[in-house]
Amino acid sequence: MIKTTRRTALSMFAATAIGLVTAAGLSTAAQAADAIKIGILSLTSHSPSIIAEGKGYFTEQDLDVEFVSFQAAQPMAIAIASGDIDFGMTAISGGLISLAEKGAVRIIGGALQETPEISGQKILASKAAYDAGLTSPDKLAGHTFGVTTPGSSFHYMAHKIADKSGFDRSELKITPMQKVPAVIAALKSGQIDAWSIVPNIAGALTKGPEVVEIGKVSDYIDNYQVTTVFTSTKNVTENRDLVTRFLAGLSKGIADYNAALVDKTMSADEVAEITGMVHKYVYADQPIEKAGPRIAAGAMRINEGAKLNIASVEDQLAWFQSEKLAPEGVTMADLVDTSFVESY
C-alpha cells in the first residue's frame, strides 16, 4: 500500500515540474512527440499507415499517431479542411479538387496505382446485363453504370472506359447511389448494369451468381493513380518538417506493405504479423482466419516512397474540369505540392 501525505504529494509535484522544465530546456530530442491524426477507411489500401504505426516507424520520426476512421472519402477531405485530422489517403474526387481550389488541402504524394502486372480494379456487369450481351466493357454504350456520387473516381473510370472504347461519354447512364453498399445491392439485383471496383470487393461479388467480371480498369486507364496522400495547405506551408517526417514513416510502411502483401517477398511469420496489425482496423468484425485472405486479396501496389504519377493526376483534373465537376480555374499548382516526393 502506498501512503502519500499531502506534503510528499506536493514535493513530488514540484520535482516533476522542475524535471519537465529542465527537460524542455535541455534537449529537443526529449520533447513530447508531435501528435498527428490520420484519417483512414477500413480498406486494405489504408494499411501502410497502420503498419508504420504498428512497426514504430512513426515513433522513429517522433510522431504520435491517432487514427480516425471514416465511412467515405469525402468527409475525410472535409475533416482535413476543417483541421480535425492532418493526413488522409483517398481517390481524387471533385470534392477534393474543390477544397484545393479554396486553399484548404493539397496532394503531397501518391498511393494506390493501377499497374499492368498486379491484379487491379475490375469492371463488373450484372448477370442479367451480361446475359443480354454486355460481355465486355466496350459494349457499355446505352447501359447504366453505378457510381457513388457524380465526380467520384467511379465516374472518372466510367468515362475513361467510354473514351478508350470509342463511344460517347453521354451514352453511359451514370447512376449515383451515394454509398458502395447501395451500388452493390443495385448491381446484384440487376437494377444497374455495370460497375468498377477494387479487386477484393470484385472477387467477393463474382463468386456469387449475380455478378460477372467483364474487364480490368488497367486496360482502359494507363498507370491510373487511384489514390493520393493529402494534407492541409497549412501543414504544407507552415509544417513542412512534419509533413516530411510523416511521409518518411509512411514510406517505410508502404515498403513493408508491398513486400508482405503485393510482392510476397516476406516470410510467412512476418506476413502474419503485418496482417494482424491491419486486421485491427480492416475487416475487424471478422475473425483473423476469414479476414486474413480478404486483406491479402485486396492488396494493390502502393507506390514506393509515395511517388506520385503527375501525368495521371493531370489527366484526372482535366477530366473533372471538362465535365464541369471541378472549378475551371484550378491549376495543378493549386492541387499538388510536388516538393515532398518523387513525381513522374
Binding site: 469525402q74 477531405a77 472535409i78 474526387s93 471533385g94 470534392g95 477534393l96 474543390s98 477544397l99 479554396k102 457513388t148 456520387t149 457524380p150 465526380g151 467520384s152 447512364k173 451514370i174 447512376t175 449515383p176 447511389m177 451515394q178 447501395a182 443495385a186 437494377q191 444497374i192 465537376l325 471541378a326 472549378p327
Partner: peptide, 21 residues
C-alpha cells in the same frame, strides 16, 4: 433523389455536396 437520380433539386444538392461546390 439520393439514389439513381440524374436530375432533381435534391440530386443537384447532393452532387454539390459531393463536389464540395
Amino acid at each position: 433523389e439520393m439514389i439513381g437520380a440524374e436530375y432533381g433539386i435534391g440530386a443537384y444538392i447532393l452532387m454539390a455536396g459531393a463536389l464540395f461546390a
